[in-house]
Design a protein around this nucleic acid. Structure first.
Lengths: 229, 229
DNA sequence: AAGCATACATACCGGTTGGTATGCTCGTCA
DNA sequence: TGACGAGCATACCAACCGGTATGTATGCTT
């Protein structure tokens, strides 16, 4: 195993475990066990569990921003971008098999970290603000394209934030209650409505986004009970 | 202290602590300490931490359903009900002082409980399904009153669920990131949009709901660091 | 007054947590 | 060839976790 391998492996496993469960439920021991390394290796590469978490957020963002850039590629019309987003969300959170639901690995974790660890909160804020920026750009494109109902006193930035809230609300619920069936439908309708998408554009475009091979290693399966049993 | 006092006190303190933080971060020791009782008393009244949590959900529901019934009183027009809901949410989550943000005490807790403890998941599901019912009733009323944009293929039940997702998304975020300023505005706009509320009814009615005195004891302050430091 | 159950208080338990101290094994370079 | 640091493995730690065993004060019943 090369030098950077162990480190990356720890990051990936940690992400996967936190994704399936959440920060406070995932112990250092469990991470090491799944990664096939010892605690000595862990604390050789990371100074603390929180530190790992910080680096994992950056790592996570680095991974998904490629996908997001593809989803929101300027080559795609705003309507295609929208359908791409929906497709991306469904794939990322539910996966191909639609077996288990992953929450956002970070969304529910914020409240579980000591408030003294400001670095972590900052990392989370960077993540969410970036996500909102993508959303806002989408809104802006749709608006310019005349796809949205007129709405003078609400700007793209705010609508992007509304989308962010809603999306995480949906998946957070789905993650906890393990219901899948209506998730895609609810997600779609909710986003359409929050956008104020004109009715004639509902389900109008076909998504052209496909998961990038480069990320498939990231979604490799790690077997463990979903919660802390 | 009377017999039922200790028990109720434990329930209330536990709720308050979970509210400010979350299930897995709140220990039995901390609950006992804040409640001013010993562990012996705790395990005299509750057979486990999870059991307490179950009873707390029921207790919580019993408390807020009075408020919800007042918010959604048939004496109020649907538009007033809507504004009441907004008012209620802001008051319940942000409080009068707008100092700290409380997440829903249960929303983020689901993922932190052993999956073997099915009872807890059931209790949570009852809670959320009840909330959705209230929302759905509101949607139905607004629709009957002709306040909503026509939307043939989305029923009241589904819209109620969308509202639920969005609301919890907003407060979950606010709770973690401790931002308050735009919460009320975002919440309002998002709900209006998800409802498809006709533009002429935005901000149209005045809420007539006021917090019930009976619940004020429930929101008593408990001092502790917000997260598990 | 005897008997007994309720309502706790105190002390303690095994297991797990995040974190550390120490030692070993390599490849590298003087 | 020998010093040395990077990259770990092993063993261990105090703190804390949820939970329990046992003692005790109080009040009700008979």
């Amino acid at each position: 195993m090369s030098v950077t391998d162990t480190r990356e492996r720890l990051l990936e496993i940690a992400l996967e475990l936190i994704w399936q469960s959440n920060y406070s439920c995932v112990g250092v021991n469990e991470i090491c066990k799944q990664a096939g390394v010892t605690k000595g290796a862990f604390y050789h590469h990371f100074e603390s569990k929180a530190s790992l978490f910080c680096e994992a957020t950056a790592y996570y963002w680095q991974v998904i921003r490629n996908d997001l850039d593809a989803v929101f590629s300027p080559l795609n019309s705003p309507l295609v971008q929208l359908e791409n987003l929906l497709h991306f969300l469904i794939m990322a959170k539910l996966g191909n098999d639609q077996a288990g639901i992953r929450g956002c690995p970070f969304y529910t974790s914020g409240a579980q970290i000591g408030s003294n660890e400001e670095k972590v909160i900052e990392a989370l804020e960077l993540l969410s603000s970036n996500a909102v920026k993508y959303n806002a750009a989408l809104v802006h494109g749709l608006k310019s394209g005349g796809c949205l109902e007129e709405d003078v006193d609400v700007d793209a930035e705010q609508t992007g934030l509304l989308l962010y809230h809603f999306i995480h609300g949906v998946f957070s619920y789905a993650h906890v209650h393990e219901v899948v069936e209506n998730t895609k439908r609810d997600l779609t309708v909710g986003i359409y409505r929050l956008l104020g998408l004109k009715r004639e554009h509902w389900y109008a475009a076909e998504p052209n986004w496909v998961p990038q091979q480069a990320n498939s290693h990231f979604v490799e399966q790690v077997m463990l009970p979903r919660r802390s049993d």
